[in-house]
């Protein structure tokens, strides 16, 4: 069974907490770069962690269309990761 969008978002948020700038508050609409203080390479490294968390392959070129936390969660959800 694949994970629901809410489950994807919950697990993604847990990962974002580890990479976001100290005390950065965020929600679905937060931008990864401007809102979380991630530079382009931190976003790429986040992608490695996300791929491992959900055991899926996410080509880095999809990031061209990913600006917010919700964008990222939607892309992961579309790839049908397994539920926990």
């Amino acid at each position: 069974m694949s994970a629901s969008y809410d489950e994807v978002l919950r697990r993604l948020n847990k990962q974002l907490e580890t990479v976001a700038e100290l005390n950065a508050e965020f929600d679905e609409s937060t931008e990864l770069v401007d809102g979380l203080g991630l530079d382009s390479f931190k976003v790429l490294d986040l992608l490695l962690e996300v791929e491992d968390e959900f055991d899926i392959s996410i080509p880095m070129n999809v990031l061209a269309d990913v600006r917010t936390v919700a964008d990222m969660a939607k892309r992961i959800h579309e790839l049908g990761p397994k539920a926990e």
């Binding site: 790429l44 992608l47 490695l48 791929e51 055991d55 392959s57 996410i58 880095m60």
Partner: peptide
């Protein structure tokens, strides 16, 4: 093309990502 990165100098990580 679609581009996937693997962890630096980590052949095991490459294997994992190719398998996916």
């Amino acid at each position: 093309a679609d581009v996937v990165r693997f962890r630096h100098n980590n052949a095991e990580d490459l294997d994992k990502r190719l398998a996916r």
